[in-house]
Design a protein around this nucleic acid. Structure first.
Lengths: 204, 204
DNA sequence: TGAAACGTCGAACATCTATTCAAAATTTTA
DNA sequence: TAAAATTTTGAATAGATGTTCGACGTTTCA
């Protein structure tokens, strides 16, 4: 009868601690990437925010790119969750409005949406493909929502590709100017964007 | 009576040739920056497109940053020109529509608008301040146009800051996805954006 | 056409930064 | 509390790239 053959795995306590540390690193990295971009951010920059040297990061991630990659993965997971939730809404205008508001929230509240605004070209070829696929899925869903709205007569006929680029541009650009300490509060941005961007589509 | 004391200046012919070469360099740099971002673009990348070595570039620009800076300067000059032209339009909706359409054209036709979408933090402190000031001037003008429209009752009351961020985000993001060979043509994008983004503001 | 101006090259340099690794410090665990 | 596991460190390495500079072609122009 086989026994657990590999070395004894870490205790739940240790595993949890490690998970938390990884989260801290990702959060510090996210903020740095957002401010200065991936290439202009050094591992020392990230490590400094954690009170540690850059070499310590290698105990949690194999290299710099994988930090960026995991940032991306989390964002995409968040968007998948949004899409899932949005499917419950019947009215196209409501669904689109919901998606915009929630996407903005993801960009501002946790900053977790930001990676989507980063340059994808910094990722390895395979990771790039994966991220682009997921992003395309999201874009398609948005386009479909707009096209549904047009079919229903809720929205006027528009080029859905162009409309989606406008919406995603507005949202992704948030990563460039939003500062949590600033005068604009997150909810205000979400509501404003939803009104502005959905309002521009509705039939009059 | 003082005579021209310094060394004889280059002939108009030579000066013109040099000007053209600088333009070529700036254009090659612009495209590279757009694709991969400033930091991921090497001087060799830029030089390769011109069939020379990176060291040749130093005859035209003192360093890499100054190439980026001049890209920015040209974009900003272009925006100043737009603002000047737009002042002739009385109706706020028309003025805003014009600005959006023309800004999109600047982003797509010559790609000259792209630098505004680049990370400003790559510039030196002084250049950064200058670019930010010019950008702020543009943003203020857009805000004012929206506020005027609200006063006139053309637009509904909105947070003009939020609205301007949405508009500029949509436009700047073009630098990330637009490819001249792609299926979306420039005019189509400009018209679509103008309709979508102005339409979201008009009172109903 | 030939001297002067101009543009490009190649080598060399300096710096920066991602990454490796063995040793030291710290924390966990029994 | 002491051995084991884990985390961090500091030194060292390697590769990339911005930049300098003198030599070598090429172009301009009188």
């Amino acid at each position: 009868m086989p026994v657990p053959s590999d070395t004894n795995s870490p205790s739940p306590y240790v595993r949890e601690k490690r998970r938390k540390r990884r989260d801290e690193i990702l959060h510090a990295a996210l903020q740095a990437f957002r401010r200065n971009g991936y290439h202009a951010t050094t591992l020392e920059d990230i490590a400094r925010h954690l009170g540690v040297r850059s070499t310590a990061l290698y105990h949690y991630f194999p290299d710099k790119e994988s930090i960026l990659y995991e940032c991306h993965q989390r964002s995409l997971a968040e968007l998948d969750r949004l899409m899932e939730e949005a499917r419950g809404l019947d009215c196209s205008a409501e669904r689109l409005s919901f998606l915009i508001r929630e996407h903005v929230r993801v960009m501002t509240d946790t900053l977790d949406g930001s990676p989507l605004a980063f340059e994808v070209t910094a990722l390895s070829e395979e990771h790039q493909q994966e991220v682009i696929s997921a992003r395309d899925r999201y874009e398609r869903e948005l386009r479909r929502t707009i096209e549904d709205g047009t079919s229903d007569g809720e929205f006027r006929p528009v080029n859905s590709k162009v409309a989606v680029f406008a919406i995603l541009g507005a949202i992704n650009w948030i990563a460039r100017w939003y500062r949590p300490e600033g005068s604009l509060h997150a909810a205000e941005i979400g509501a404003g964007f939803a009104d502005h961007l959905v309002g521009g589509l509705v039939a009059r």
